[in-house]
Nucleic acid binder design. Sequence first.
DNA 1: AATTGTTTTAAACAGTTGTTTAATAAATAT
DNA 2: ATATTTATTAAACAACTGTTTAAAACAATT
Lengths: 208, 208
Amino acid sequence: MAKSNEKQGIDASTEEKIKEAARVVFTRKGFVSTTVRDIAAEADINLALVNYYFRSKQKLFDLIMIETIEKLFSEIMVIVMDESTSLNKKIELIVDHYIGQLLNNPDFPLFIVNEILSGSNKFPAFIKNAAAIKGSYFFKQLNELNMDKELEINPIHILMNIIGLIIFPFLGRRVLEKAAGVEEDDFRDLMEERKKLIPIWIGKIIEN
Amino acid sequence: MAKSNEKQGIDASTEEKIKEAARVVFTRKGFVSTTVRDIAAEADINLALVNYYFRSKQKLFDLIMIETIEKLFSEIMVIVMDESTSLNKKIELIVDHYIGQLLNNPDFPLFIVNEILSGSNKFPAFIKNAAAIKGSYFFKQLNELNMDKELEINPIHILMNIIGLIIFPFLGRRVLEKAAGVEEDDFRDLMEERKKLIPIWIGKIIEN
DNA sequence: AATTGTTTTAAACAGTTGTTTAATAAATAT
DNA sequence: ATATTTATTAAACAACTGTTTAAAACAATT
C-alpha cells in the first residue's frame, strides 16, 4: 500500500499521456462523441489502461474539466480582483489575456458550449467560478458606472458584451472559414485586431 | 407504385409528428445524444416508423436542419437585401427579429454551435446562406462606413459584433442562470432590453 | 533467486445504438 | 367482397459502447 511519490522524471508517462490525449480528443469531439477507444488510440496505449488509471470515462472527463476551468478562472481572477487598476485597464487586460489564450486553443469555446448543451452536472466548477466574478472589484467598478448616468445599464449587459465580443468569433470560426473564406492566418489577424478594438468599443459603450 | 398525393387534412399525422418530435429532441440534446428511441417516444409512435418514413436518423436530421436554416435565412435576407432602408434601420430590424425569434427558441443557438463542433457535413446550407450575406446591400452599407474614416474597420468585425451581441447571451444562458441567478423571466427582460441597446451600442461603435 | 506488487494486454461482457425483418392491421382500389 | 397497397408493430440484427476480467509482463523488494 506504500505509494511511490515520484511521478516526475522521464516517465510520468502513461497516466499523463492518457490525460493529454483525452484533453485533445474531448476538446475536438465533445464528451459523447469521444470514445474510450479514441483516447486510447490517441495516447497509443491499451484500451483498458484508461479505466485502470481513471476508473471511468466520466471521471477522466471531470478531472480534465476541473483542471481546465480552475486554470481558466484563476488567471482571470488576478485581474478582476485587483483594486489598483482602472476599469479600462482591466478590460484591456482581460481582452488581451483571453484572446491570447484562445488563439492557442481555439476549439475550447465550442467545447465548453457543447458541454453546456449536453446538460449534465459536468461543470459545477464553472458555475462556482463564474459566480465569483459578481463579487469582484471589477464588477463593483462596472456598477459604479451607473452613478453619474441618466439611464442605468445592468452590469450584466457589459459583462456579456465583453465576453461575447471575445468568444463569439471563435464559436463562428468554422462558419467564417467556409462562408467568408477566412483562413487560419486571416482569423489570427482578425483576432489580433480585436485585442485593440474591443476595449475601444466597450469604452464607447460605457461612456456617457 | 401509384402515390397518393394528399398529405393534408386532419391526419398529416405520423410523418409530421415524427418531424416535430425530432426537432424538439435534436434541439435539446444534439445529434449524437439523441437516440431514435428518444424521438419515437417523444412522438409517441413505434420505433420502426422513424426509419420507415425517413430512412435513417441522419436523413431525418439533415431534413430538419435544411428546413430550419432556410427559414432562418430567408427571413433575414429580406432585411439585408432591402436597398431602401438605412444601415441603422437594418440593424434595428435584424436585432429585433433575431432576439424575438430566439426568445421563442432559446436552445437553438446552442444547438447550431453544437452541430458545428461535431464537424460533419451536416450544414452546408448554413454555409451557403451565410456566404450570401457578403453579397447583400447590408454588407455594402457596412463597407461604405470606411469611406470617411481615418481608421478602417473590416466589416466582418461589425457583423461578428452584431451577431455576437445577439446570440452570445443565449449560449451562456444556463451559466447565467446558475451563476448569477438570472431566472427565465429575468432573462427575457434582459433580452428585451438588448433589443433597444444593441442598435445603440453598434451605433456608437461605427460612428466616427 | 524467489516473492510481491504494479503495469500492460487481449478477450470478453453486458448494455445501447441504428436499422431491418417478417408478420399483422388498416386503408384503398378493384 | 376481394385483392392490393400502405401503415404499424414486436422482435431481432449486428455493430459499437464503457467497463471488467484474468492472465501475462515487468519492476521492485526481500
